[in-house]
Design a protein around this nucleic acid. Sequence first.
DNA 1: GTCTATACCCAGATAGAC
DNA 2: GTCTATCTGGGTATAGAC
Lengths: 181, 181
Amino acid sequence: MPPAPVARGKILRAFAELLTDSGERAATLDAVAARAGVSKGGLLYHFPSKDALAEGLAAHLRELTEADVAVMRAAPAGPVDYLLRTSTATDGDFEVVYLAVSRLAQGAYPHARAALDDAHDAWVEAVAEEVGDPTVARAVVLLSDGLYARTALGAGGPRVTDDDIDALVDLVGVLAAARRG
Amino acid sequence: MPPAPVARGKILRAFAELLTDSGERAATLDAVAARAGVSKGGLLYHFPSKDALAEGLAAHLRELTEADVAVMRAAPAGPVDYLLRTSTATDGDFEVVYLAVSRLAQGAYPHARAALDDAHDAWVEAVAEEVGDPTVARAVVLLSDGLYARTALGAGGPRVTDDDIDALVDLVGVLAAARRG
DNA sequence: GTCTATACCCAGATAGAC
DNA sequence: GTCTATCTGGGTATAGAC
């Protein structure tokens, strides 16, 4: 796919931010256009319908996932550390889009669910290579899902700190060792 | 609070089901009224606005949480087993309402976030008494959150089975033992 | 306590100018 | 490729009958 106009990217970013910050209900075409700095007409030139916009975001997640999993596999501290640590990030292109698509997946957007499942599978695979046990790998990815869920609720309750993540990574180490031994 | 009319309960139930099954967008007053078997006017008699309806559901979650945590503490196989096993249930009053309030918490409903945080805290406390380690307790509740998140996505990908839960409960046992030892 | 009818507004989408 | 103007449907809320 050639060039891909700048406006397209700004629109997807704005849509993703609104979804994660304020929920499905707040992510209207008007609001997305305003945040992206274009008119509603301009938005509808790039994405002819709201469904098209949602599919565009799901497709964008697939691209980002491919890149992110590659980084994860090459991470110095290993996939587990990388996955758990990024599961509490609120900035970062990947995290914003992942959370946004999670919101869409709760509504009437099957594409979103499929893109999410694929990311999930890729994570389980990469983590399993590190910990050497499929059950532990699934548990790690479930932890990641839990962290994402908490993070997404935002500034309300007690935030998850870096120290908490350190402790979780330790726990996974203990677990993998116990399983191997 | 005296009697609490039957219609009120049916309305809250219908609202919760629509939220969990189809998302925030689909849970309109029209749809809720239709599913509850009342008219829109009838609904608005019990809950004078949509905000009031959302607050009603959050309050309902608080009631259910109190009862559920009591059951959890008394569960024969222990809180961990109980929590993880119920985190994949899609029927059950508590689970439906919990997931529904999770949806609301993503939007503009601060009450929902608060009710969720309280449930979370109660779980961590109950689990900590069993496993004897606050970090492991937090990890278990994060696993529960992850399971809820997966469950909520519905029939799409590979479902979490009872055997998977057995394996997770085992894992937690290994972890708690390793920590104590 | 529950209904019908209606007012009002906003979200999604179209048409066509520039 | 981006804009303004406009139409249409549906979602929230009110008024008032029963």
